[in-house]
Design a protein around this nucleic acid. Structure first.
Lengths: 193, 193
DNA sequence: GAGATAACCATACATCGGTATGATTATCGG
DNA sequence: CCGATAATCATACCGATGTATGGTTATCTC
């Protein structure tokens, strides 16, 4: 059902995610949707939580892959942050859904909590990466991990909007991200190559 | 009428900007609103254009003020970019409206054009500022103005969302912006002090 | 296998939103 | 002053939406 909500929003916006439309898209009746979700708000909130959870899971997977492959922190972070850019149709759709919910979060306290929590988790992980970079020699010891993480997450946030608006600038966005990461993690890790 | 739309969206979200609500808020009848706007889409589009025009005007005014006062390009840019952050109730409201329209722009081509055009104007102006910085010695000659401008506008975009979500991080956001500007325009202007 | 619980559906209802219509009043040029 | 144009309003209409209701079928427990 969450997938149905996602498809509808990705295709026609939040307003298209009506009860009957969701039921139709999912192949069920309206009554069934009501059986599982007491209200439309509940349904949308669930779909939102599901979306952010999927995203964080994907990022975690890319991190794990990168670590397993012995990549530098900088490479892993670039991989993870680029994952957040709407670089292909699937992620463009996801971006549409995500932005729709973020707009909704401005009037819906519970949705705002989800948005804030997701952003916090992401920032914390990036900060952890920077902190790790200090220990292994990739990062300048004077760099403030939280400040750098805040900047990076805000930057990808803005770049995602840019890439969505103008896909032809995708490579530009990628270059900006890579350059900034190279400035923030300039060193060579002393553990890996 | 545009002001009424803005007030409603700022207070209760885009969905609150219904025809009758706008009419009531503006102190007119529904018929009058229809008299001036053929459809609700037209009304919202007008309100959006009005909003972005106001914003760009304000930024231009800050630029002019800064130039008149003989400030450095870096100081002027910090002033202009900080203007885009939701640092007070008025700008928080404006941010809500702006984000609501940006979300709408994802399904509304004409609104998307407005959003893209506004972003382009902003980026162009920032790029011009960086280019000027080269001529007067504030910027490293190897800096790509367009790339730097793209990064800066994306950064403020993301920082604006952050500050909106968590106003306690307003100073953090300001510090990040100031630091990044100091990195991009490190020199002293040879014309002014 | 009986009974309870969950899954599932069709439909009715009340509300609300955008738009269409028709009329009434003001403004103003000639 | 008068005709036309603009301003302004009240209301009717249709479609859509969220939700409530009542019922039917499946599933599982004892």
């Amino acid at each position: 059902m969450a997938a149905a909500v996602h498809r509808l929003i990705a295709h026609d916006g939040l307003d298209a995610a009506t009860m009957s439309a969701v039921a139709r898209e999912a192949g069920f009746s309206v009554g069934l949707v009501q059986h599982y979700f007491a209200s439309k708000d509940d349904l949308l909130l669930f779909a939102y939580e599901r979306l952010t959870a999927d995203l964080l899971t994907r990022v975690a997977a890319r991190t794990a892959d990168g670590e397993a492959a012995g990549h530098s922190i900088r490479a892993i972070m670039l991989d993870c942050l680029a994952e957040l850019l709407p670089l292909d149709p699937a992620r463009r759709g996801e971006h549409r859904v995500s932005r729709a919910f973020q707009a909704r979060a401005m009037d819906n306290p519970t949705a705002a909590e989800v948005a804030a929590a997701t952003a916090a988790v992401l920032r914390t992980r990036v900060a952890q990466g920077i902190a790790n970079g200090k220990e292994c020699g990739e990062t300048d010891p004077t760099t403030d991990p939280d400040l750098a993480a805040t900047e990076l997450t805000a930057l990808v946030d803005g770049l995602a909007d840019l890439v969505y608006r103008d896909p032809t600038r995708a490579t530009t966005a990628g270059a900006i991200l890579a350059t900034r990461l190279a400035e923030l993690l300039p060193g060579r890790c002393r553990h890996y190559d």
